[in-house]
Design a binder for these strands. Structure first.
Lengths: 174, 174
DNA sequence: ACCTACATGTAACCCGTTACATGATTTG
DNA sequence: CAAATCATGTAACGGGTTACATGTAGGT
């Protein structure tokens, strides 16, 4: 799925501006999809030209005006079609795992930092997902994605914690 | 890490042709990095021009001649530097998780197929990683990446298997 | 004074993918 | 006899990123 299609998906959760769509990518979608402003804004312009969304401008006091987009019926259908056509492909690329593959070539310091940082990130991701989950109000599908993310990240964390000793040999403080 | 840098890493495991480098991406690197022929071959040409690898042609009977690349000391150092500079970034994008997020919009059939297919893929990946691991001869770092992959994929599989009942309601065969 | 949040956009660039082209040999 | 494996490459295209540009309001 490319950015325009993902924007349709984001709008299925309710009308939103480009800025707000980006926020959805940072919260509910954050652990399985990404999109930048530079991809979202042109996508929305295009989707409007194609009749898949409609736009209206909302002026605010004390805030810049924003353009709110709504799915049209065609847009809704387009997204559902795309969902059905999707083969469920996944992309995973990890420089962390690459670093560990070549752990023997890393300085002891860098190796320790790498593991530490990765643990940290996993803990942050888990905390963020739990926070979103605990807000409640999710459909079973949405709930699945949150719990799935939490389960997988927890397994990663457990494995890293357990393997740490193999790679890091505590030195007494001088 | 981009394709040229990854090729240096692949060559750290021993001299290889472009074709053989691709095979390394399909086996030992397969669960955390990807590279296509169309990215590898130009990368190798470039690396040679930059003095990071050397090339020699090896003729074979009954097989096309192949160009074997070897890391130079500069190439080896370049890769180690890149490893140290890496922030361990990860990219994960999953259309499967997206489909599950919108599970309520999918046909019962498509939903069942989606879950089934994902389970299948997870089992295949686990089996492939176990096969590579059981060949033995890996450094602790390499071993970590294999075991990490297996641990994470098993957790995913367990979660999907356990959640299946929530989404699929077995209908008696007509 | 400075940074963050809100809000939208463009231009240049990079990297990688898809598809194509070629050709021998082995396996089913 | 078709398909897969071995082996290398190019050309066109597409998609997304980085960086830039602009401006207000509110918090530290």
């Amino acid at each position: 799925m490319n950015t325009p299609e993902l924007c349709l998906g984001a709008l299925l959760c309710g009308d939103a501006s480009g800025y707000e769509i980006k926020q959805r990518f940072e919260t509910i979608f954050s652990h399985f999809q990404k999109a930048s402003f530079a991809a979202i804004y042109p996508a929305l312009t295009r989707l409007e030209a194609d009749g898949l969304v409609t736009a209206r401008v909302e002026t605010q006091q004390k805030r810049p005006a924003k353009t709110i987009y709504s799915l049209t019926e065609a847009g809704r259908q387009r997204f559902i079609d795309a969902l059905h056509e999707s083969q469920g492909d996944e992309i995973f690329r990890s420089d962390f795992v690459l670093q560990m593959f070549f752990a023997e070539l890393l300085d002891a310091d860098k190796l320790a930092e790498t593991l530490e940082r990765h643990e940290q990130r996993l803990r942050e991701t888990i905390a963020r997902l739990e926070a979103v989950r605990d807000q409640g109000g999710h459909s079973p599908g949405q709930r699945f994605t949150l719990d799935y993310g939490i389960a997988v990240k927890r397994a990663s964390l457990a494995f890293v914690e357990q393997s740490k000793a193999t790679f890091i040999h505590e030195e007494p403080e001088p």
